[in-house]
Design a binder for these strands. Structure first.
Length: 201
DNA sequence: AAATGCGCCAACCGCGTGCGC
DNA sequence: AGCGCACGCGGTTGGCGCATT
């Protein structure tokens, strides 16, 4: 198990200075080598020569966080493409659908929703959507299966394809998987392609 | 106005996995 | 093949702010 092995590292909320320091590190070296970022009050804990260079440059002095903490802070907050603010209805719907299909695979779900992190989605689920989902489960007559049946029969009677599903998923610019969110037998195929997409990422 | 409860979110922790040696 | 390191993931917790009493 990973233990960054230091009892005197900073914990808790990040300061603006720490954020700036971390951002500088990432700007210079990219979002990797998190272990290298772990620095103990001026005495650098390093495993890589990059850090020695950074010491010489005076770039990251003062940051006293474990690598794991640095990585998390970057991924969930400092990353430029992180979208802040409320989830849209479309995003919420997508999370619900994906969760039904693949469960608590937050990182997979996050990759499907541009700008959202796994942690953010997980929090949002626990805070908002779990209740919603439980409520749905408690409505005996409106089980998921029944909903699917209803949708099926509606589609059959309409004789139309269900292209109404909002498309906010990442990588959909080319319209590669508009059919993905149909509640239909092809759902399984979509899951399959979804997972295949994962392998490409 | 103060005390308490509750919800939300950022961050931490433990475990699993991949990769290099 | 085995070991250790580094990273990624999901569950959990701590603290803050808002609502209610």
């Amino acid at each position: 198990m990973e233990n960054d092995g230091n009892t005197s590292l900073n914990k808790g909320a990040w300061s603006a200075d720490e954020d700036a320091t971390l951002a500088q590190y990432v700007a210079l070296h990219g979002p990797k080598r998190w272990k290298c970022v772990a620095i103990k009050s001026g005495l650098f804990i390093f495993t890589h020569t990059y850090l020695v260079q950074m010491v010489e440059m005076g770039v990251v002095a003062g940051l006293n966080r474990c690598g794991k903490s640095c990585r998390l802070r970057w991924l969930n907050y400092l990353r430029p493409d992180v979208k802040r603010g409320n989830f849209s209805d479309a995003e919420e719907d997508l999370i619900l659908r994906l969760h039904r299909l693949i469960g608590n695979r937050w990182s997979l779900i996050a990759k499907r929703i541009p700008g959202r992190t796994d942690n953010e989605i997980k929090n949002y689920w626990n805070a908002h959507l779990r209740k919603k989902e439980k409520l749905m489960e408690k409505l005996p007559a409106i089980s998921l299966a029944a909903m699917k049946e209803n949708l099926w029969s509606e589609e059959a009677s309409n004789g139309t394809e269900s292209q109404e599903t909002e498309d906010i998923g990442g990588g959909n610019e080319d319209g590669d998987d508009d059919e993905s969110f149909d509640v239909s037998a092809s759902e399984l195929n979509w899951v399959k392609s979804f997972l295949e997409l994962e392998e490409d990422v």
